[in-house]
Design a protein around this nucleic acid. Structure first.
Lengths: 342, 342
DNA sequence: TTGAAAGCGTTACCAG
DNA sequence: CTGGTAACGCTTTCAA
């Protein structure tokens, strides 16, 4: 494949000077090393002429840094992760870093394998949404002093940097809103896993319920259901088993979409028959009739903090700080689906 | 950062043997090089014990291959691209390749810069949705005999591998369906650009119109409109200016979503007042009331062909084939939004 | 002001 | 069967 690439050596030979000189000039150390103006000029001109680009690979090997950051999420085709990815990518490129994405499917073994292969690629930093049981691997990453930041969920036992949102607080607030709108019997539909963000959302929900003495039912959908259709059917069953439910809180948007389908199948009217609301805003919540109330995570801020944290750890100049633990506020977008008088 | 990593040299020293031997064993050439069973055993045991992993960086430098493929799309947060990315990623990992994603925003300069920086990272292959005016860069890639495959759109003048879908045929078929359902005056809403896929869709639409002698109007939305709201307003204007339109064909799903918003604002009923249909299926088209008719691209097949093509080019064993030009069929999902009697 | 050479971690050729 | 060593492309120390 690919024609032989010109190397720094070729340049040196062509110009009849040493590799060192070329290297210094390329790396902007001409001044510092007091290389003559004309030499510098000659070299830069030649480089521009032949369009030489140094090999990042060789640089990485030599310097022990690759300027690559891994962004490891549950599923990159998920809108939430894809959006963050997009924002991260932008900020990374601006700082001379590249991003490698990968999806874990929330499978520990896949995650472990991925981390191991990335370590041997000398990536500089890891941004990870941890799968269950990933503690030991994360610990080894910490021991090796790798730049690391968790997001979306974190591991309570570990003292790592992370960026998450106020799951519990927002879930509580949203639940209170539902109660405030007259809901007396609220169903919480979530995914059956012990990821912190899901647990916190449930906790927030229950806190509100307890506080106000309302009734509640909870449906935990197995994360192993691949076929979406199944999810919708589960929700239908849930609704028929608990006919008195007058509101539904979905812990994440894809569950809400399935819920919408279930509700339509049962001929339930939103919000007259049943009010609904979901965590994780989605562009289409604003489009659906009625518009769906939801809790919006601050994508931009999450990406910002993530990069700030990882870049901070990567900055050799800066003194190494203690792990940064960032918890960002969400925004409750109240729309038609949860309103009493609508 | 990171503790000193153990290298092949450390292993050789620790075991009192040569680097070469270790290297052979690691690379499974023990048999071939007729290294003794016990030596092999000793080394593999030791490697397992200390958990040694070879440096991919050094391997890449040495071998001139990085086992990295770049996936360069317009916008990775777009559902279509994110879904393909997910599928590609899976297939790549299975073959020992990693994927680096990046978004061009359909901006030539960004694309050029990206390609240049990836070249110096010795990536092995490029999967690209070309931006306008990217010809020269693509040509230089071809001259360097880089593994390359375009997708979503391609560059007619260039003899590259590509994977696209039957845009024209499907658009025509969909338009005929609309006419068949009694539409007499169809509006085509597209993005104002000369990307091949959009042009082909328009061509297919017009072909059907001409063939059947129907009426048509076309609205081209500038790709520079960032604010979605604006798009929706444009569509509203379009509809009020052409009140006789009885069907709308959206060339891509995000335009359809905005169209839905516009239609709702104008109080138009689908499909009674106006029928609609869109290119690029979306999970939510099936959820909306009424369900939206759309043309579904074969994501899985696209990803499959893309990887097949790039891996084929990367396979040193295989004789270099002429560029593979793949055109995949789509599927017209007829749903409620385009049906007469609904 | 410039150059020689070591070294980053591998692979693979050539000896023995 | 095993080992020495050049080379991949670069940075950087030390020397001139």
């Amino acid at each position: 494949m690919a024609k032989k690439k010109t190397s720094i050596k070729d340049i040196a030979e062509a110009l009849g000077i040493s590799i060192t000189t070329v290297s210094f000039i390329i790396n902007g150390k001409a001044r510092e090393k007091r290389i003559s103006e004309e030499m510098t000029q000659k070299v830069t001109d030649y480089i521009k002429k032949i369009g030489y680009k140094p090999s990042h690979l060789a640089q990485s090997l030599r310097l022990g840094k690759s300027r690559v950051i891994v962004f490891m999420v549950e599923d990159i085709s998920n809108q939430f992760f894809a959006s963050i990815a997009r924002l991260i990518e932008e900020k990374a490129y601006k700082n001379g870093y590249k991003i490698i994405y990968c999806s874990t499917d929330n499978d520990v073994n896949k995650a472990k394998e991925l981390i191991s292969t990335f370590k041997m690629r000398n990536v500089d930093g890891f941004i990870i949404t941890p799968t269950p049981d990933l503690e030991t691997t994360i610990i080894s990453l910490m021991e090796e002093e790798q730049a690391l930041v968790l997001f979306d969920r974190w591991i309570p036992e570990l003292d790592t940097s992370y960026v998450v949102v106020e799951n519990q607080k927002s879930a509580k607030e949203a639940t209170l809103h539902l109660i405030d709108q007259g809901s007396k019997n609220i169903g919480f539909v979530t995914v059956d896993s012990n990821q912190t963000q899901m647990l916190d959302r449930l906790a927030g929900f229950q806190e509100a319920i307890t506080e106000k003495g309302s009734n509640q039912e909870t449906l935990k959908i197995s994360p192993f259901i691949i076929e979406k259709k199944q999810i919708s059917l589960h929700i239908q069953d849930f609704l028929t088993m608990h006919p008195s439910l007058d509101a539904l809180f979905f812990s994440t948007n894809y569950l809400a979409f399935e819920g919408l389908l279930a509700l339509a199948a049962l001929g339930k009217k939103i919000p007259e028959d049943i009010k609904i609301l979901s965590f994780d805003d989605h562009y289409l919540f604003n489009l659906y009739q009625p518009k769906i109330t939801s809790i919006e995570q601050p994508l931009e801020a999450i990406a910002e903090k993530l990069m700030e944290s990882i870049l901070g750890q990567l900055d050799a100049e800066a003194p190494s700080k203690p792990p940064q633990k960032v918890v960002l506020p969400n925004k409750l977008n109240i729309r038609e689906s949860s309103l009493k008088g609508f």
